[in-house]
Simulated assay, not measured.
Amino acid sequence: MEVKINFNLNNKDMSLKVNPLRRLLDLLREDLKLTSPKEGCGQGECGACSVIINGNLINSCCVPVGNIEGAKVITIEGLMGTKEFDILKESFDEAGAVQCGFCTPGMIMASYALLTKNKNPNEDKIRTGISGNICRCTGYDKIIEAVKMAAKKGEDIW
């Protein structure tokens, strides 16, 4: 069964006929060819599929498409080219917070979501903000450093 779903994706209005029980992750990757959200665990444990829905960081592998009716969805592709993304990317690069890159989109999304709600988080708030995202290569100290750097560099835009 397919239904019409209307939502905003990366500042573009979308109207699609889809199975409302299909995972948002699959719609984004397979149908819309947005590859930043990745299948990691498929259970909402790793954060590789993180997107922002209505201002909240959400694991897209756990969201049925029917739940995004009328929602605003943002992926990394929607952040690219913004000042915020540039600051985060530069900070992650400078801090050495990127190694294999698998977790990076989810970490960037978590960092963005955190900084838009708290423009000067302390280390505990950063740890909480990225806590749903698993990094197996880089380690969290460099990621925390990157978020601190981004907060300082972007203090006038967050």
Rank of each mutant, 00 (worst) to 15 (best):
S111D: 04
E90D: 13
E2C: 08
C100T: 08
K17W: 09
G96E: 12
I58M: 07
K33W: 02
S15Y: 10
C41S: 06
V73P: 00
G55N: 11
Y140A: 06
E123S: 14
A146P: 09
V63E: 02
S131P: 05
A71W: 09
K153T: 07
M107I: 13
I108C: 06
D156R: 14
E45S: 12
C135M: 12
V73W: 01
I157F: 13
G66K: 03
F92W: 08
M80E: 12
C61L: 08
E69H: 08
T35H: 13
D13S: 15
L24V: 07
V18K: 12
G42H: 07
I52V: 15
R136M: 13
D141C: 03
G106V: 08
V147M: 04
N19L: 07
V18A: 09
S15W: 10
I74C: 08
L24N: 02
Y140S: 09
N8I: 15
N67C: 02
C100Q: 05
I130L: 15
K72L: 10
L79V: 02
E84C: 00
G40Q: 02
N59R: 11
K33L: 14
Y140I: 13
G42K: 07
I74P: 01
F92D: 00
A146F: 04
G42N: 09
N118Y: 00
N19D: 15
N56E: 13
L79K: 04
V3H: 12
K119V: 00
A95I: 08
F7R: 05
L21T: 15
I143Q: 00
T138A: 11
D156L: 14
Y112D: 05
M14I: 13
N67A: 11
K38T: 03
E123L: 11
D26S: 11
G44P: 01
L57Y: 06
A48W: 04
V65F: 01
I53A: 04
T128K: 15
K72Q: 13
N67V: 00
L79A: 03
L25D: 02
R22A: 11
S15Q: 15
K89L: 08
M107K: 08
D31L: 02
M149I: 12
I130M: 10
F102I: 12
S131W: 08
Y112N: 10
N6F: 10
N8L: 12
R29C: 01
P121M: 06
N122A: 06
V147G: 01
G78K: 04
C41G: 10
C62I: 12
A95N: 07
D86P: 01
E145Y: 13
D93L: 11
L34W: 00
E69N: 12
I144K: 05
K12M: 14
A48K: 04
G47Q: 08
L79G: 00
Y112T: 10
